[in-house]
Design a protein around this nucleic acid. Structure first.
Lengths: 223, 223
DNA sequence: CGGTATCCCCGTCGATACTG
DNA sequence: CAGTATCGACGGGGATACCG
Protein backbone atom coordinates (compact mmCIF):
# COMPACT_ATOMS: atom_id res chain seq x y z
CA UNK A 1 0.00 0.00 0.00
CA UNK A 2 2.89 2.28 0.76
CA UNK A 3 5.86 2.39 -1.58
CA UNK A 4 7.66 -0.95 -1.72
CA UNK A 5 11.19 -1.48 -0.50
CA UNK A 6 11.80 -4.62 -2.55
CA UNK A 7 13.21 -6.44 0.44
CA UNK A 8 12.01 -9.67 2.00
CA UNK A 9 13.06 -8.48 5.44
CA UNK A 10 9.99 -8.42 7.70
CA UNK A 11 10.97 -5.01 9.04
CA UNK A 12 10.86 -3.66 5.51
CA UNK A 13 7.59 -5.40 4.70
CA UNK A 14 6.00 -4.05 7.87
CA UNK A 15 7.30 -0.54 7.30
CA UNK A 16 5.81 -0.45 3.82
CA UNK A 17 2.54 -0.12 5.70
CA UNK A 18 3.59 1.62 8.85
CA UNK A 19 5.95 4.30 7.66
CA UNK A 20 3.32 6.37 5.98
CA UNK A 21 2.54 9.57 7.78
CA UNK A 22 -0.25 9.29 10.40
CA UNK A 23 -0.69 5.55 10.02
CA UNK A 24 0.71 4.50 13.38
CA UNK A 25 -1.14 7.33 15.09
CA UNK A 26 -4.40 6.04 13.70
CA UNK A 27 -3.48 2.63 15.08
CA UNK A 28 -2.66 4.24 18.42
CA UNK A 29 -6.12 5.76 18.55
CA UNK A 30 -7.75 2.45 17.75
CA UNK A 31 -5.62 0.68 20.35
CA UNK A 32 -6.71 3.35 22.82
CA UNK A 33 -10.31 2.47 22.24
CA UNK A 34 -11.64 4.94 19.69
CA UNK A 35 -13.99 3.29 17.24
CA UNK A 36 -15.88 5.96 15.34
CA UNK A 37 -14.67 8.27 12.66
CA UNK A 38 -15.25 11.43 14.63
CA UNK A 39 -13.72 9.96 17.75
CA UNK A 40 -10.62 9.26 15.73
CA UNK A 41 -10.69 12.81 14.43
CA UNK A 42 -10.66 14.23 17.92
CA UNK A 43 -7.48 12.34 18.69
CA UNK A 44 -5.98 13.44 15.35
CA UNK A 45 -7.15 17.03 15.00
CA UNK A 46 -4.51 18.07 12.48
CA UNK A 47 -5.23 15.20 10.15
CA UNK A 48 -7.57 16.03 7.31
CA UNK A 49 -10.72 13.92 7.13
CA UNK A 50 -9.91 12.81 3.62
CA UNK A 51 -6.54 11.50 4.68
CA UNK A 52 -8.03 9.76 7.71
CA UNK A 53 -10.54 8.16 5.42
CA UNK A 54 -7.80 6.98 3.11
CA UNK A 55 -5.73 5.56 5.95
CA UNK A 56 -8.70 3.67 7.33
CA UNK A 57 -9.31 2.17 3.93
CA UNK A 58 -5.66 1.18 3.64
CA UNK A 59 -5.66 -0.40 7.07
CA UNK A 60 -8.84 -2.25 6.24
CA UNK A 61 -7.38 -3.61 3.02
CA UNK A 62 -4.24 -4.62 4.86
CA UNK A 63 -6.42 -6.63 7.22
CA UNK A 64 -5.65 -4.58 10.30
CA UNK A 65 -9.14 -3.35 10.97
CA UNK A 66 -12.74 -4.11 10.20
CA UNK A 67 -15.24 -1.50 9.22
CA UNK A 68 -18.69 -2.37 10.43
CA UNK A 69 -21.83 -0.27 10.11
CA UNK A 70 -24.52 -0.86 12.70
CA UNK A 71 -27.36 1.18 14.10
CA UNK A 72 -26.60 4.17 11.97
CA UNK A 73 -22.99 4.47 13.08
CA UNK A 74 -19.84 3.04 11.60
CA UNK A 75 -17.32 1.33 13.83
CA UNK A 76 -13.70 0.54 13.15
CA UNK A 77 -12.29 -2.32 15.12
CA UNK A 78 -8.84 -3.80 15.05
CA UNK A 79 -8.51 -7.34 13.81
CA UNK A 80 -6.11 -9.75 15.54
CA UNK A 81 -3.42 -8.52 13.15
CA UNK A 82 -4.17 -4.96 14.17
CA UNK A 83 -4.21 -5.76 17.85
CA UNK A 84 -0.76 -7.22 17.57
CA UNK A 85 0.52 -3.78 16.68
CA UNK A 86 0.03 -2.78 20.28
CA UNK A 87 3.56 -3.89 21.21
CA UNK A 88 4.87 -1.82 18.34
CA UNK A 89 3.00 1.26 19.51
CA UNK A 90 4.22 0.63 23.04
CA UNK A 91 7.83 0.17 21.99
CA UNK A 92 7.77 3.33 19.88
CA UNK A 93 6.13 5.32 22.65
CA UNK A 94 8.48 4.05 25.30
CA UNK A 95 11.42 5.06 23.17
CA UNK A 96 9.80 8.43 22.55
CA UNK A 97 9.38 9.12 26.23
CA UNK A 98 13.02 8.43 26.88
CA UNK A 99 14.74 10.03 23.91
CA UNK A 100 12.54 12.57 22.28
CA UNK A 101 13.66 15.54 24.33
CA UNK A 102 11.77 18.58 25.51
CA UNK A 103 8.39 19.22 23.99
CA UNK A 104 7.98 22.32 21.88
CA UNK A 105 5.21 24.76 22.63
CA UNK A 106 3.64 23.68 19.38
CA UNK A 107 3.23 20.16 20.72
CA UNK A 108 1.17 21.25 23.69
CA UNK A 109 -2.43 21.07 22.61
CA UNK A 110 -5.06 21.40 25.35
CA UNK A 111 -7.66 19.61 23.29
CA UNK A 112 -5.47 16.56 22.90
CA UNK A 113 -4.67 16.56 26.59
CA UNK A 114 -8.32 16.68 27.56
CA UNK A 115 -9.19 14.03 25.02
CA UNK A 116 -6.51 11.78 26.46
CA UNK A 117 -7.59 12.42 30.04
CA UNK A 118 -11.25 11.80 29.27
CA UNK A 119 -10.42 8.28 28.17
CA UNK A 120 -8.55 7.60 31.36
CA UNK A 121 -11.03 8.61 33.99
CA UNK A 122 -11.21 5.86 36.58
CA UNK A 123 -14.80 4.76 37.07
CA UNK A 124 -16.00 4.04 40.63
CA UNK A 125 -13.48 6.52 41.98
CA UNK A 126 -15.15 9.69 40.75
CA UNK A 127 -17.96 11.15 42.85
CA UNK A 128 -21.44 9.70 42.43
CA UNK A 129 -23.61 11.61 39.97
CA UNK A 130 -22.38 14.31 37.65
CA UNK A 131 -19.11 16.10 38.29
CA UNK A 132 -17.83 19.03 36.28
CA UNK A 133 -14.10 19.56 36.21
CA UNK A 134 -13.09 22.91 34.77
CA UNK A 135 -9.65 23.53 33.31
CA UNK A 136 -8.03 26.91 32.87
CA UNK A 137 -4.68 27.06 31.12
CA UNK A 138 -3.06 30.36 32.00
CA UNK A 139 -0.44 30.22 29.25
CA UNK A 140 -2.73 29.39 26.36
CA UNK A 141 -4.42 31.66 23.85
CA UNK A 142 -7.85 32.94 24.81
CA UNK A 143 -9.82 30.63 22.54
CA UNK A 144 -8.33 27.40 23.83
CA UNK A 145 -7.84 28.44 27.41
CA UNK A 146 -10.90 26.98 29.10
CA UNK A 147 -12.17 23.44 28.96
CA UNK A 148 -14.57 21.26 30.87
CA UNK A 149 -14.75 17.58 31.58
CA UNK A 150 -18.22 16.30 32.40
CA UNK A 151 -17.88 13.14 34.43
CA UNK A 152 -21.18 11.35 34.23
CA UNK A 153 -22.02 7.99 35.76
CA UNK A 154 -21.50 6.20 32.47
CA UNK A 155 -19.57 8.48 30.17
CA UNK A 156 -17.18 11.39 30.11
CA UNK A 157 -17.54 14.37 27.79
CA UNK A 158 -15.05 17.01 26.74
CA UNK A 159 -16.38 20.54 26.22
CA UNK A 160 -14.77 23.73 25.04
CA UNK A 161 -17.73 25.78 26.21
CA UNK A 162 -19.19 25.90 29.70
CA UNK A 163 -21.67 23.02 29.87
CA UNK A 164 -23.64 25.13 32.29
CA UNK A 165 -24.13 22.73 35.16
CA UNK A 166 -21.79 24.69 37.37
CA UNK A 167 -18.21 23.69 37.94
CA UNK A 168 -17.45 21.27 40.77
CA UNK A 169 -13.67 21.58 40.84
CA UNK A 170 -11.37 23.75 38.81
CA UNK A 171 -7.83 23.04 37.66
CA UNK A 172 -5.81 26.17 36.98
CA UNK A 173 -2.43 25.41 35.51
CA UNK A 174 0.24 26.02 32.93
CA UNK A 175 -0.57 23.64 30.10
CA UNK A 176 3.02 22.43 30.07
CA UNK A 177 2.76 21.59 33.74
CA UNK A 178 -0.40 19.51 33.42
CA UNK A 179 1.07 17.71 30.44
CA UNK A 180 4.13 16.92 32.55
CA UNK A 181 1.92 15.47 35.26
CA UNK A 182 -0.03 13.48 32.70
CA UNK A 183 3.12 12.10 31.10
CA UNK A 184 4.63 11.13 34.46
CA UNK A 185 7.46 13.65 34.26
CA UNK A 186 6.29 15.15 37.51
CA UNK A 187 3.61 14.42 40.09
CA UNK A 188 0.41 16.13 41.10
CA UNK A 189 2.01 16.80 44.45
CA UNK A 190 5.10 18.47 43.04
CA UNK A 191 3.02 20.47 40.59
CA UNK A 192 0.75 21.71 43.37
CA UNK A 193 3.69 22.57 45.57
CA UNK A 194 5.28 24.61 42.79
CA UNK A 195 2.00 26.46 42.31
CA UNK A 196 2.24 26.02 38.57
CA UNK A 197 -0.92 24.01 39.15
CA UNK A 198 -3.70 25.04 41.49
CA UNK A 199 -6.94 23.29 42.40
CA UNK A 200 -10.00 25.29 43.32
CA UNK A 201 -13.10 23.93 45.05
CA UNK A 202 -14.13 22.09 48.18
CA UNK A 203 -11.16 20.65 50.02
CA UNK A 204 -12.24 17.01 49.87
CA UNK A 205 -12.69 17.18 46.12
CA UNK A 206 -9.40 18.98 45.63
CA UNK A 207 -7.71 16.21 47.52
CA UNK A 208 -9.51 13.49 45.61
CA UNK A 209 -9.18 14.81 42.07
CA UNK A 210 -5.74 13.37 41.25
CA UNK A 211 -7.09 9.89 41.90
CA UNK A 212 -9.84 10.32 39.33
CA UNK A 213 -7.44 10.09 36.42
CA UNK A 214 -5.16 7.29 35.40
CA UNK A 215 -2.06 8.86 33.88
CA UNK A 216 -0.79 8.28 30.37
CA UNK A 217 0.09 4.66 29.62
CA UNK A 218 3.64 5.92 29.10
CA UNK A 219 3.88 7.62 32.48
CA UNK A 220 5.39 4.47 33.96
CA UNK A 221 8.27 4.23 31.51
CA UNK A 222 11.47 4.69 33.53
CA UNK A 223 13.59 7.65 32.47
CA UNK B 1 13.44 16.48 11.38
CA UNK B 2 10.45 14.89 9.76
CA UNK B 3 7.19 16.80 9.51
CA UNK B 4 5.77 17.57 12.92
CA UNK B 5 2.49 16.17 14.19
CA UNK B 6 1.94 18.85 16.80
CA UNK B 7 1.15 16.29 19.44
CA UNK B 8 2.87 15.75 22.77
CA UNK B 9 2.18 12.01 22.59
CA UNK B 10 5.50 10.15 22.63
CA UNK B 11 4.36 7.91 19.81
CA UNK B 12 3.86 10.97 17.65
CA UNK B 13 7.16 12.55 18.71
CA UNK B 14 9.00 9.32 17.94
CA UNK B 15 7.29 8.85 14.61
CA UNK B 16 8.28 12.32 13.49
CA UNK B 17 11.71 10.79 13.20
CA UNK B 18 10.93 7.20 12.39
CA UNK B 19 8.16 7.43 9.84
CA UNK B 20 10.30 8.80 7.09
CA UNK B 21 10.98 6.35 4.33
CA UNK B 22 14.09 4.18 4.85
CA UNK B 23 14.88 5.53 8.30
CA UNK B 24 14.06 2.42 10.29
CA UNK B 25 15.82 0.25 7.74
CA UNK B 26 18.98 2.26 8.21
CA UNK B 27 18.61 1.68 11.93
CA UNK B 28 18.08 -2.02 11.28
CA UNK B 29 21.35 -2.15 9.37
CA UNK B 30 23.21 -0.39 12.16
CA UNK B 31 21.65 -2.66 14.77
CA UNK B 32 22.76 -5.60 12.63
CA UNK B 33 26.34 -4.45 12.86
CA UNK B 34 27.04 -2.48 9.69
CA UNK B 35 29.20 0.53 10.38
CA UNK B 36 30.53 1.88 7.09
CA UNK B 37 28.73 3.74 4.36
CA UNK B 38 29.23 1.11 1.74
CA UNK B 39 28.29 -1.68 4.11
CA UNK B 40 25.04 0.12 4.72
CA UNK B 41 24.56 0.50 0.99
CA UNK B 42 24.86 -3.22 0.46
CA UNK B 43 22.02 -3.81 2.89
CA UNK B 44 19.98 -1.05 1.25
CA UNK B 45 20.72 -1.49 -2.44
CA UNK B 46 17.65 0.38 -3.70
CA UNK B 47 18.35 3.43 -1.59
CA UNK B 48 20.19 6.20 -3.37
CA UNK B 49 23.50 7.23 -1.81
CA UNK B 50 22.36 10.82 -1.44
CA UNK B 51 19.31 9.77 0.50
CA UNK B 52 21.36 7.45 2.69
CA UNK B 53 23.71 10.30 3.35
CA UNK B 54 20.82 12.55 4.32
CA UNK B 55 19.31 9.97 6.62
CA UNK B 56 22.62 9.42 8.37
CA UNK B 57 22.93 13.14 8.94
CA UNK B 58 19.40 13.30 10.32
CA UNK B 59 20.02 10.39 12.65
CA UNK B 60 23.24 11.98 13.80
CA UNK B 61 21.51 15.28 14.54
CA UNK B 62 18.76 13.45 16.38
CA UNK B 63 21.44 11.89 18.58
CA UNK B 64 20.89 8.33 17.43
CA UNK B 65 24.29 7.74 15.93
CA UNK B 66 27.81 9.03 16.00
CA UNK B 67 29.87 9.58 12.90
CA UNK B 68 33.52 9.00 13.54
CA UNK B 69 36.35 9.11 11.03
CA UNK B 70 39.40 7.03 11.83
CA UNK B 71 42.17 5.48 9.80
CA UNK B 72 40.80 6.69 6.54
CA UNK B 73 37.38 5.15 7.01
CA UNK B 74 34.23 6.62 8.46
CA UNK B 75 32.24 4.65 11.00
CA UNK B 76 28.68 5.13 12.08
CA UNK B 77 27.83 3.81 15.50
CA UNK B 78 24.59 3.89 17.39
CA UNK B 79 24.47 5.94 20.54
CA UNK B 80 22.58 4.64 23.59
CA UNK B 81 19.48 6.35 22.20
CA UNK B 82 19.98 4.56 18.92
CA UNK B 83 20.61 1.21 20.54
CA UNK B 84 17.32 1.49 22.35
CA UNK B 85 15.57 1.34 19.01
CA UNK B 86 16.44 -2.33 18.84
CA UNK B 87 13.20 -3.30 20.61
CA UNK B 88 11.30 -1.19 18.10
CA UNK B 89 12.97 -2.91 15.17
CA UNK B 90 12.32 -6.27 16.78
CA UNK B 91 8.66 -5.52 17.46
CA UNK B 92 8.11 -4.28 13.92
CA UNK B 93 9.92 -7.28 12.45
CA UNK B 94 8.08 -9.77 14.61
CA UNK B 95 4.78 -8.27 13.52
CA UNK B 96 5.96 -8.34 9.92
CA UNK B 97 6.78 -12.02 10.06
CA UNK B 98 3.35 -12.86 11.37
CA UNK B 99 1.08 -10.59 9.37
CA UNK B 100 2.77 -9.42 6.23
CA UNK B 101 1.64 -12.25 4.01
CA UNK B 102 3.34 -13.95 1.12
CA UNK B 103 6.39 -12.29 -0.32
CA UNK B 104 6.17 -10.99 -3.85
CA UNK B 105 8.75 -12.05 -6.41
CA UNK B 106 9.98 -8.48 -6.35
CA UNK B 107 10.92 -8.84 -2.70
CA UNK B 108 13.25 -11.76 -3.33
CA UNK B 109 16.67 -10.31 -3.90
CA UNK B 110 19.57 -12.75 -3.92
CA UNK B 111 22.05 -10.04 -3.05
CA UNK B 112 20.17 -9.14 0.10
CA UNK B 113 19.86 -12.78 1.09
CA UNK B 114 23.58 -13.36 0.69
CA UNK B 115 24.38 -10.15 2.52
CA UNK B 116 22.18 -11.27 5.39
CA UNK B 117 23.64 -14.76 5.46
CA UNK B 118 27.21 -13.48 5.37
CA UNK B 119 26.62 -11.63 8.64
CA UNK B 120 25.27 -14.72 10.30
CA UNK B 121 27.96 -17.24 9.61
CA UNK B 122 28.77 -19.04 12.84
CA UNK B 123 32.48 -18.87 13.54
CA UNK B 124 34.21 -21.99 14.89
CA UNK B 125 31.64 -24.16 13.15
CA UNK B 126 32.80 -23.61 9.60
CA UNK B 127 35.69 -25.72 8.31
CA UNK B 128 39.21 -24.58 9.11
CA UNK B 129 40.82 -22.46 6.43
CA UNK B 130 39.01 -21.02 3.45
CA UNK B 131 35.70 -22.43 2.32
CA UNK B 132 33.86 -21.35 -0.81
CA UNK B 133 30.12 -21.81 -0.83
CA UNK B 134 28.57 -21.37 -4.24
CA UNK B 135 24.92 -20.48 -4.72
CA UNK B 136 22.92 -21.09 -7.86
CA UNK B 137 19.36 -19.78 -7.96
CA UNK B 138 17.52 -21.60 -10.69
CA UNK B 139 14.60 -19.22 -10.86
CA UNK B 140 16.56 -15.99 -11.06
CA UNK B 141 17.64 -13.97 -14.08
CA UNK B 142 21.01 -14.85 -15.55
CA UNK B 143 22.92 -11.91 -14.13
CA UNK B 144 21.96 -12.47 -10.51
CA UNK B 145 21.83 -16.24 -10.62
CA UNK B 146 25.23 -17.18 -9.23
CA UNK B 147 26.84 -16.04 -6.02
CA UNK B 148 29.69 -17.07 -3.78
CA UNK B 149 30.35 -16.81 -0.10
CA UNK B 150 34.02 -16.90 0.84
CA UNK B 151 34.30 -18.10 4.42
CA UNK B 152 37.72 -17.11 5.67
CA UNK B 153 39.11 -17.65 9.14
CA UNK B 154 38.32 -14.08 10.15
CA UNK B 155 35.87 -12.67 7.65
CA UNK B 156 33.20 -13.56 5.17
CA UNK B 157 32.93 -12.04 1.71
CA UNK B 158 30.06 -11.97 -0.74
CA UNK B 159 30.91 -12.21 -4.43
CA UNK B 160 28.83 -12.04 -7.56
CA UNK B 161 31.69 -13.37 -9.66
CA UNK B 162 33.59 -16.59 -9.17
CA UNK B 163 36.36 -15.79 -6.67
CA UNK B 164 38.42 -18.42 -8.41
CA UNK B 165 39.55 -20.55 -5.50
CA UNK B 166 37.33 -23.42 -6.52
CA UNK B 167 33.96 -24.08 -4.95
CA UNK B 168 33.86 -26.27 -1.85
CA UNK B 169 30.10 -26.81 -1.63
CA UNK B 170 27.32 -25.64 -3.88
CA UNK B 171 23.77 -24.73 -2.98
CA UNK B 172 21.35 -25.07 -5.89
CA UNK B 173 17.91 -23.82 -5.03
CA UNK B 174 14.88 -21.77 -5.85
CA UNK B 175 15.54 -18.37 -4.35
CA UNK B 176 12.14 -18.40 -2.70
CA UNK B 177 12.96 -21.68 -1.04
CA UNK B 178 16.25 -20.54 0.42
CA UNK B 179 14.61 -17.37 1.67
CA UNK B 180 11.94 -19.52 3.33
CA UNK B 181 14.65 -21.53 5.07
CA UNK B 182 16.44 -18.37 6.11
CA UNK B 183 13.26 -16.82 7.50
CA UNK B 184 12.34 -19.96 9.41
CA UNK B 185 9.25 -20.69 7.34
CA UNK B 186 10.67 -24.06 6.51
CA UNK B 187 13.72 -26.10 7.46
CA UNK B 188 16.84 -27.17 5.61
CA UNK B 189 15.62 -30.73 5.98
CA UNK B 190 12.22 -30.08 4.47
CA UNK B 191 13.72 -28.03 1.68
CA UNK B 192 16.21 -30.77 0.82
CA UNK B 193 13.51 -33.42 0.92
CA UNK B 194 11.35 -31.40 -1.46
CA UNK B 195 14.31 -31.09 -3.82
CA UNK B 196 13.66 -27.39 -4.25
CA UNK B 197 17.05 -27.13 -2.62
CA UNK B 198 19.99 -29.35 -3.45
CA UNK B 199 23.48 -29.44 -1.99
CA UNK B 200 26.42 -30.51 -4.10
CA UNK B 201 29.83 -31.50 -2.82
CA UNK B 202 31.46 -33.95 -0.42
CA UNK B 203 28.93 -35.69 1.80
CA UNK B 204 30.36 -34.52 5.12
CA UNK B 205 30.29 -30.90 4.00
CA UNK B 206 26.78 -31.22 2.60
CA UNK B 207 25.66 -32.53 5.96
CA UNK B 208 27.48 -29.82 7.86
CA UNK B 209 26.55 -26.78 5.79
CA UNK B 210 23.21 -25.98 7.47
CA UNK B 211 24.99 -25.58 10.78
CA UNK B 212 27.31 -22.94 9.38
CA UNK B 213 24.58 -20.33 9.25
CA UNK B 214 22.50 -18.87 12.01
CA UNK B 215 19.09 -18.13 10.57
CA UNK B 216 17.42 -14.74 10.47
CA UNK B 217 16.83 -13.20 13.89
CA UNK B 218 13.13 -13.38 13.04
CA UNK B 219 13.17 -17.08 12.23
CA UNK B 220 12.22 -17.87 15.81
CA UNK B 221 9.09 -15.75 15.85
CA UNK B 222 6.14 -18.15 16.30
CA UNK B 223 3.62 -18.08 13.49
C1' DC C 1 -22.53 11.51 12.12
C1' DG C 2 -19.40 9.98 8.46
C1' DG C 3 -17.47 10.86 5.23
C1' DT C 4 -16.24 12.83 -0.47
C1' DA C 5 -14.55 15.96 -3.73
C1' DT C 6 -11.23 18.97 -5.38
C1' DC C 7 -7.20 21.37 -6.03
C1' DC C 8 -2.75 22.68 -5.89
C1' DC C 9 1.68 22.96 -4.03
C1' DC C 10 5.74 21.71 -2.36
C1' DG C 11 8.98 18.46 -0.88
C1' DT C 12 10.63 13.82 -1.22
C1' DC C 13 12.43 10.65 -3.41
C1' DG C 14 14.61 8.27 -7.31
C1' DA C 15 18.01 8.21 -10.97
C1' DT C 16 22.29 9.23 -12.61
C1' DA C 17 26.60 11.20 -12.87
C1' DC C 18 30.61 12.60 -10.86
C1' DT C 19 34.42 13.74 -7.40
C1' DG C 20 38.32 13.88 -3.70
C1' DC D 1 35.94 4.26 0.19
C1' DA D 2 32.58 7.96 1.09
C1' DG D 3 30.07 10.57 -0.31
C1' DT D 4 28.03 15.41 -3.55
C1' DA D 5 25.64 17.42 -7.29
C1' DT D 6 21.92 17.96 -10.03
C1' DC D 7 17.44 17.47 -11.78
C1' DG D 8 12.89 16.25 -12.69
C1' DA D 9 8.50 13.90 -11.66
C1' DC D 10 5.15 12.55 -9.05
C1' DG D 11 2.16 12.08 -5.69
C1' DG D 12 1.34 12.59 -0.84
C1' DG D 13 -0.76 15.42 1.94
C1' DG D 14 -2.81 19.96 3.57
C1' DA D 15 -6.71 22.96 3.17
C1' DT D 16 -11.26 23.75 2.28
C1' DA D 17 -15.72 23.01 0.81
C1' DC D 18 -19.46 20.26 0.51
C1' DC D 19 -22.84 16.25 0.75
C1' DG D 20 -26.11 12.34 2.19
Amino acid sequence: MGAPYYQFCPVAKAMELLDERWTLLVVRELVSGSEQFNQLRRGLPRMSPSLLSRRLTQLEHAGLLERRASEGTVRYRLTPAGHELRPVVEAVGAWGVRWTGELGDQDLDPQLLLWDMHRNVVPDVTPVGRTIVGFHFRDVAQRKRDWWLVLGPHEVDVCDTDPGFGTTVRVVADLRCLVAVWMGDTTWTAALRSERLVLEGPEDLRRALPSWFALSPFSTVPR
